[in-house]
Design a protein around this nucleic acid. Structure first.
Lengths: 210, 210
DNA sequence: TAGATTGTTAATCGATTAACAATC
DNA sequence: TAGATTGTTAATCGATTAACAATC
């Protein structure tokens, strides 16, 4: 019987990609210490030490550190980056186009395998090798493409409706770029790419500074 | 002497836009209770109550709640959304284009007043009413446009260089859409729009579910 | 062996939650 | 007045930080 996987704190999850980027610049077979990473990333040493204990399956080596390789594997496992994820994108506007053309998803083992829109002028076209389908055919095509993640790039007003149909089509997780909170069934995972939050952060610090 | 402005916790800042969106749907002159908001937004009642105390300058009214108006004003003040922010955008690729065409910034009182690129074919064009300038002229034009925020939409490899020139040109804050951590002077505010974090969040929950 | 670094246990801190008093 | 709701103070919880032991 497999041990129940422990859910990581949000703060830790947010640090993981940072660690990953840093570690990938190092030699896989070398060793790295928590102190070195803490200094480079401007984080607290004890924090990094603790994080690394959660990340790595193997023990660290006193006076040496941890194998870069182990840390990378540990992070990629926790983030599911070790498995290929197939995604479909809905809404081929400016933003959708940007994402379809983005080369960085490979790094996370995320592959956009199809796009959807209502606009007849776009349907049938191929963008960066990804075909655009009629959103009305979502259910059958989603199944055929075997996609588990839906990326929503439609305007806020349409996002909820799109989400409902994505869920109905059997999607497991939604990556939402529309500026709304989606109200979907609890067993569907939703992650928001929230411009408002990010801007709020900037704006508030600007306000404090004044 | 003005009281030193207290910096809000990150978690609170992230909740503020959520509150704002919800409150804006209500009648400005009506009253709303912390419990009502907590239920609608699926948050803890005590948490919302405490948050509202931090947000509002006025006392709440027992048995009634708080004036919607006061809460909205409080949030907008804390986020600096009550003042107009002028921004320039660097990197008119797919993503830059998407942002230049995005209509939602008005809501936050953010105005993109100019765009920059190196590509001679784009320089001089106007996108959604926003002129594209040669990035080499950044310093003088930034001053002329009186912009305080720089939005970076260039590829990761160029982001650091762009950031340095933005800072040199006198920008106060950077909203970074490139997937890198920028290493700039501490008195320049940086907020990252971090796809990796957002995706990590989704991917980790997908991993847990399996 | 000495020293760097990990591992573990304890202390601190801040955010969240709970409990109860005050008030319209 | 009773009840809903805010205000305030206390308890809890988890994340971070600190201290020290273990080990290569």
């Amino acid at each position: 019987m497999a041990r129940r996987k422990r859910e990581l704190s949000n703060n830790l999850i947010n640090r993981l990609p940072q660690y990953l980027t840093y570690l990938k610049e190092l030699d896989k077979d070398s060793y790295v210490s928590a102190l070195e990473v803490a200094n480079s990333l401007n984080l607290n040493f004890e924090l990094v030490k603790k994080d690394f204990q959660k990340i790595s399956s193997k023990r660290g080596v006193p006076n040496k550190g941890r194998k870069v390789d182990d840390l990378i594997n540990g992070i990629e496992k926790l983030l599911g980056f070790d498995e290929n994820h197939r995604a479909i994108l809905v809404g081929v506007g400016h933003l959708g186009n940007a994402l379809l053309n983005y080369q960085g998803f490979k790094q996370y083992n995320l592959e956009i395998v199809g796009a959807f829109d209502y606009n007849k002028e776009i349907i049938g076209k191929t963008i960066n090798g990804i075909k655009v389908y009629d959103f009305d055919d979502i259910s059958s095509i989603r199944r055929k493409l075997n996609a588990t993640i839906g990326i929503i790039c439609v305007p806020a007003s349409e996002a909820e409706g799109v989400a409902i149909r994505l869920v109905a089509s059997g999607i497991e997780a939604i990556w939402n770029f529309a500026p709304v909170r989606l109200d979907v069934n609890d067993d569907v995972i939703v992650s928001n790419m929230d411009m408002a939050q990010s801007l709020a952060n900037l704006a508030h610090r600007l306000y404090i500074k004044k």
